[in-house]
């Protein structure tokens, strides 16, 4: 089974290598990826925004919307990580504790006076 999967992945990788025969050589200045919109970025980054570093100019100016989407993905990943792992603990007066209150309470040991607010079985 493991050998079969290895052979299958080997065939796939050799197809990938075979498929590179019409890709441009490494370092070719005339390759399609180096001729398109990037020449505009190189020639106009300083004129448009007084920024010598073209990577920064493309990141935050020309393609700012793309960067905004990626940044929101990072924050959404952090939020989902917190939502997966943590649950707030309800205090005795009914208000909710801090973000890490349930984790800390479980680490401190069982406390019969309070109960978790989430849907624990």
């Amino acid at each position: 089974m493991k050998l079969f999967a290895m052979i299958l992945i080997g065939i796939l990788a050799s197809f990938v290598i075979w498929g590179t025969h019409d890709l441009p050589e490494r370092g070719d200045p005339q390759s399609p990826a180096n001729l398109g919109v990037s020449t505009y970025y190189i020639e106009n980054a300083y004129i448009d925004s007084e920024t010598p570093n073209m990577v920064t100019a493309v990141l935050a100016d020309y393609r700012g919307f793309d960067t905004f989407g990626e940044a929101v993905v990072v924050v959404a990943a952090a939020l989902s990580s917190l939502l997966i792992l943590l649950r707030r603990r309800r205090r005795e007066d009914g208000s909710e504790g801090g973000l890490f209150s349930e984790v800390d309470a479980q680490k401190a040991g069982p406390d019969p006076s309070t109960s978790p607010s989430g849907g624990a079985p």
């Binding site: 940044a71 990580s81 917190l82």
Partner: peptide, 20 residues
């Protein structure tokens, strides 16, 4: 600020071990 906060939040969530 965004990357700083997000990565620290991911680390703290993982480091806390999660609730039962």
């Amino acid at each position: 600020f965004l990357v700083w906060g997000a990565l620290v939040a991911i680390y703290d969530a993982l480091e806390s071990g999660g609730v039962e």
